[in-house]
Simulated scan of single mutants.
Amino acid sequence: MAGPRSRRCSRMPIGICRSSGPTWRASIACSPSDAALSPAYSSRSPAIWFLTMKIAKVEAFLLSSPLDEPLLLPFYGGERTILKRDAMLIRVTADNGLKGYGPGPAHERAEREINETIAPFLEGRDPAQWRTFEFPGELALQKTYRAVEVAVIDLAARFEGAPVSELVGGRKRDRIKLYGSAGMYMSPEEYANEAKAIADLGFTAYKMRPARGPEKDLETIARMREAVGPDVGLMIDAHAWWSLGDNSYSHNTLEQLPRDSQA
């Protein structure tokens, strides 16, 4: 395939035939099925052919892994019992057999939304045009759609032979920093031990999730700093546990945080 508007393909078409109407079709060696070809014109060439594809199927796979024993996690004001771990895999398949993947909300409502509403909306559309799709719906449904959109963009990127980053604005950097993230609702000692283990693996920062109450959370931060030393970054993902003016987590609590921690 040649020309400035051609989409990437690792192999040339091995045959072209005329179908009914203005659409051309070609048998492509790198695809299990035919892919539609459409003519485009430029000043350089009388005809430039580029591949197109359509979304054929959108699937949501709700996965669940029961724990051998219930996991009890005490937090400030209660206790959480975890019986299983859930996840969702979204797969979007094109009419040429290519597939894109993405993670999704791990609950049955999202599975129904994808199968009953989002899939019919997307099927038959060109994934390369994902920016132009105007999906209707209230906020919760929109959140589920955005998860599916990740798989659509992944499909478009695979078709182009390019990283997803190239389709969403281009690469901004060649390297990124990674940090270790904690479990939930652990004791100060457990957080400190995990922070030390993460630092020993070579990570330069560690993120914890507070939920044991103001005093325990401040103790946790102090113990983590003692465990990892001054050169490892500490981050706090408060996720709605802390708010200014709250009776339990006040601005006084936040002011007691070590200066080198990042809330």
Rank of each mutant, 00 (worst) to 15 (best):
P127E: 01
A128T: 08
Q129T: 14
Q129N: 15
W130E: 02
T132K: 11
T132W: 12
T132F: 14
F133D: 00
F133W: 14
E138Y: 15
E138S: 13
L139F: 15
L141N: 02
L141S: 05
Q142L: 11
T144F: 02
T144K: 00
T144L: 01
R146N: 12
R146F: 12
A147F: 12
A147T: 13
V150D: 11
V150T: 15
V152A: 05
R158Q: 09
E160Y: 10
G161F: 00
P163R: 02
V164F: 06
V164P: 05
S165H: 07
S165I: 13
E166F: 08
L167T: 01
V168F: 05
V168W: 07
G169K: 04
G170L: 09
G170P: 04
R171S: 14
K172Q: 13
K172P: 08
K172G: 14
R173M: 11
D174E: 15
K177Q: 15
L178F: 15
S181C: 10
A182G: 14
A182Y: 00
A182L: 05
A182D: 07
G183E: 04
G183D: 09
G183F: 07
Y185K: 03
M186I: 02
S187V: 07
S187A: 06
P188I: 00
E189C: 04
E190C: 01
E190K: 10
E190D: 13
A192N: 01
E194T: 04
E194F: 05
K196S: 08
D200Y: 12
